[in-house]
Each structure stands twice: as C-alpha cells, then as structure tokens.
Amino acid sequence: MSDVTAYGSLFLVALAAATIFPAQSEILLAGLHASGNYDDAMLILAATAGNVAGSTVNWALGRYLMHFQDRRWFPVPRRLVERATGWYQRFGVWSLLLAWVPVIGDPLTLVAGILRVDLRLFLLLVTIGKAARYVLLIVAI
C-alpha cells in the first residue's frame, strides 16, 4: 500500500470512528505500525486529524441540528446525550479530554456543540486527548 493510501485510509477510518459509523481506527493504526513500513509520527497525525474532524462533525450536529434529536435518523440516542451532559456538567470543559473514550466520547463532543463550547477550545482539548490515545497505542505496541 502506498504511503498516501495508507495515511489517507487511516484518516478516513479515524474520521468515521468519531462519528456514527462503526469503525476501529486503532486496529488499522496498529496494523500499519506493526508493518514497520510507515512513519509513526505521520500515522499519529493522520489518525488524530481524522478523529478530530469526526468529532467536529459531532460538535456541529450539537451546535446546529439538535432540534432534530427526536428524529429516527439522528445519530445519537437521547439517553447518551443525557449521560454525556451529566459528565460535562460534572467535569466541565475538561471532560473533552476524554472525547476518545468509547460510548461516552462521541456524545460528549455533541454536547459540547449543544452547550456552544468555543470551537477553538473544543479543538484544542479534543486534539490533546485523541493524540495522546494514539501516541500511547503506538508506544504500547
């Protein structure tokens, strides 16, 4: 697989993983890393950029489309929004450092949009958390 294809695929899988689509960016990242054919910094950059982009889609859904929350097609169930809102109310904006956590992370990014968290602060905290996860994954392999 060419470098562009590998990094681009990782970006897209990581983007999908942060939205409503079932995808596991960690598996692809681990496989590419284990092959030894790709630069670890570029793998982390591609995965982080894609995952943050997906989280930004969630933020935009919360910011601009929550009035559709009761529609069948809306990607996040009300109970997950309520759970994430509780986390956010308990830990504040710092909870966005946990945007990578399965089940609660995606709704947290949606709630950040609902609560109109400044996009710059959102991007900073979500990027730190998600990049740290990918760095730890690379180090652990």
Rank of each mutant, 00 (worst) to 15 (best):
Met1Gln: 07
Ser2Asp: 13
Ser9Trp: 10
Ser9Asp: 02
Leu12Ile: 11
Val13Asn: 02
Ala14Leu: 06
Ala17Thr: 14
Thr19Glu: 02
Ile20Gly: 14
Ile27Ala: 15
Leu28Ala: 08
Gly31Ser: 10
Ser35Leu: 03
Asn37Leu: 15
Asp39Lys: 01
Asp39Phe: 09
Asp39Pro: 11
Asp40Trp: 07
Ala41Cys: 09
Ala41His: 07
Ile44Gln: 14
Thr48Tyr: 11
Asn58His: 01
Ala60Met: 07
Gly62Ala: 15
Gly62Cys: 14
Gly62Trp: 01
Arg63Lys: 05
Tyr64Met: 06
Met66Gln: 13
Met66His: 12
Phe68Pro: 02
Asp70Tyr: 08
Trp73His: 05
Pro75Cys: 08
Pro75Lys: 02
Val76Leu: 06
Val76Arg: 02
Val76Ser: 03
Pro77Leu: 01
Arg78Thr: 09
Leu80Trp: 14
Leu80Arg: 15
Val81Asp: 04
Arg83Leu: 13
Ala84Lys: 01
Tyr88Gly: 03
Tyr88Arg: 07
Gln89Ile: 00
Arg90Met: 05
Val93Ser: 11
Trp94Glu: 05
Ser95Gly: 00
Leu96Thr: 06
Val101Asp: 00
Pro102Trp: 06
Pro102Gln: 12
Val103Gly: 09
Ala112Ser: 00
Ala112Leu: 12
Ile114Tyr: 10
Leu115Asn: 14
Arg120Leu: 12
Arg120Cys: 02
Arg120Asn: 12
Leu125Tyr: 10
Val126Ala: 06
Lys130Ala: 13
Ala131His: 04
Tyr134Ile: 03
Tyr134Asp: 06
Val135Ser: 15
Leu137Glu: 10
Leu137Trp: 03
Val139Cys: 11
Ala140Met: 14
Ala140Tyr: 13
